[in-house]
Computed example of a mutant assay.
Amino acid sequence: MSTIRVVLADDQTLVRAGFRSILEDEEDIEIVGEAADGAEAVRLARELRPDIVLMDIRMPDRDGLEATREIAGDGRLEGVRVVILTTFDVDDYVYGALRAGASGFLVKDTEPTELLHGIRVVARGDALIAPAVTRRLIAEFAGRVRRPEPGPQLNALTEREREVMRLVGTGLSNDEIAQRLVLSPATAKTHVSRVMTKLGVRDRAQLVVLAYESGMITPGWLG
């Protein structure tokens, strides 16, 4: 198993120390750098090319949202994934962070096992959007944007691909999509990859955002 290389970005030294104490005992995870602000996080991402940047939202100099947008927009950092660290009192930033290019988010007081699971999920190319609380948040903030207008790029999708995109938008994994559509997991994965390629999105998280913004899924659709 390859080692997951992680950069910690948080302006609070004690917070970084807490995450480090959890992560450094894992054989498949290596902390390769720490940043106290967004500008430093971007610099380390470019210098070290980590697999994951755990990024706090509110930091001096350059906040986590702008740093995420800069990392996601740098073609040289295509393999670098950003996971936003947040607290429930700053949820207004979550949707914006996903739009900026984050691959998901974790609440700072999450259980260690969930932190480790989240890092591994994102490292293997999935988006950290499966938990029901995350889906509700995305639905809530998607509802605040202007009235969705289907983009012309959706016309390139087959009906099956549209169906797959809707299921991705609800937070289902490839295995869950396969089960729902009575497909093999490999076929479901192929469909998801084709949708992402056709729409030119960075990863699953951006596919979810596009599903909401295009009106393919409407807030409240999950009930």
Rank of each mutant, 00 (worst) to 15 (best):
L181D: 01
V82M: 08
G125E: 06
L116C: 00
E70Y: 01
P185V: 06
V7S: 01
D25T: 12
R99N: 03
P60W: 09
P148N: 12
R194I: 13
I57P: 00
I71W: 07
T170Y: 15
A97W: 00
I71R: 08
A100N: 07
R5Y: 04
P150N: 12
A72G: 07
N174V: 11
A35W: 02
A41Y: 05
E176W: 00
G33K: 02
L183Q: 03
L48F: 06
F88D: 15
R120D: 01
A100L: 07
F88W: 14
D126Y: 01
R16C: 03
T13I: 12
I119P: 08
T3S: 02
S214C: 05
R20A: 09
S21M: 08
V90Y: 14
L154G: 02
A205P: 00
L222H: 07
L23R: 00
R180A: 10
L183F: 04
T87L: 11
V195H: 13
I71H: 11
A45K: 05
P150G: 12
A102D: 03
R166D: 06
E111K: 15
P152Y: 09
L181I: 02
L137N: 13
V80D: 05
A97E: 00
V53P: 07
E34G: 04
V192W: 13
V6F: 00
T110R: 11
Y212P: 09
P150R: 13
L128G: 02
T86S: 15
G73N: 08
I52Q: 03
G79A: 12
V195K: 14
R81M: 04
A67L: 02
L199G: 03
N155D: 15
V32I: 13
Y212W: 03
H117Q: 07
V107W: 06
